[in-house]
Design a protein around this nucleic acid. Structure first.
Length: 216
DNA sequence: CTGCCTTTGAAGATG
DNA sequence: CATCTTCAAAGGCAG
């Protein structure tokens, strides 16, 4: 039964429950359960060693994530039609070809799921913008980086938790997808000076941390 | 118009 | 296994 599902349709399919019905939701209360940040032994091939991927229809996290993903633009992968039913792998194995989503007219590569900091940026960026001190993204991101480090761990855990669910949902939506599929998108012209630039960035980062900690 | 900048974190690549 | 590299978002800016 070939079926085109949108994220919104899956939301309806899964009912109105905003709470995921996972029997064992990971908790990220620091520092006691810091070790649990190993994210359930996820693999990059869409395999998962926990119970989480055993759903036969729609993962319970889907509605929760869709709700939390209100910042995603309309062209976000998660807001595009999904060409394959969730958690049911069509043949041939999807990792034998590039993963795409959307219809055949406007196919776009599936992007990486957002990590905790990226989710934090999405939620907090507008605050910095409203303060009106900075308008360039690079400057805003520097501020957000400092704020991220100053964020209480309980608050950070919120985003780590969300990022884990993001990855779980991503694995369900695009089984077999690999980050390697998007490698080489950017020009590798920074190859020459990348090493020295990274070193410079690391030193700058350390410098900022010293300032933050009042050591400089 | 294209790519850089800038951040953190995840994951692939490399030695 | 440790380290390095790439890419996710964002949008102003420079070439």
């Amino acid at each position: 039964m070939e079926q085109i599902l949108t994220a919104e349709e899956m939301l309806f399919m899964s009912g109105n429950d905003a709470e995921p019905n996972c029997d064992k939701q990971p908790s990220f209360d620091w520092p006691a359960q810091e070790s649990e940040l190993q994210y359930c032994s996820l693999t990059s091939r869409g395999q998962i060693n926990s119970h989480a991927a055993s759903a036969t229809s729609v993962h319970p996290l889907v509605p929760l994530l869709l709700h939390s993903d209100r910042h995603l633009p309309l062209r976000s992968p998660y807001s595009q039609p999904i060409s394959e039913p969730v958690a049911r792998q069509a043949d041939p194995p999807s990792w034998t070809r590039p993963c795409y989503h959307g219809n055949s007219v406007s196919r776009q590569p599936v992007k990486k799921p957002l990590n905790a900091f990226m989710l934090y940026m999405k939620e907090t960026r507008h605050q910095v913008l409203q303060e009106g001190r900075e308008k360039e993204s690079s400057a805003i991101n520097r501020i957000l980086g400092r704020r991220w480090h100053a964020l209480p761990r309980s608050e950070q855990s919120r985003f780590y938790d969300l990022a884990q669910k993001e990855r779980l949902l991503h694995m369900q939506l695009y089984p077999g997808w690999s980050a390697r599929d998007n490698y080489g998108k950017r020009k590798r012209k920074q190859l020459a000076g990348s090493s020295s630039r990274n070193t410079t960035n690391n030193l700058k980062h350390l410098d900022e941390r010293f300032v933050t900690l009042g050591l400089k």
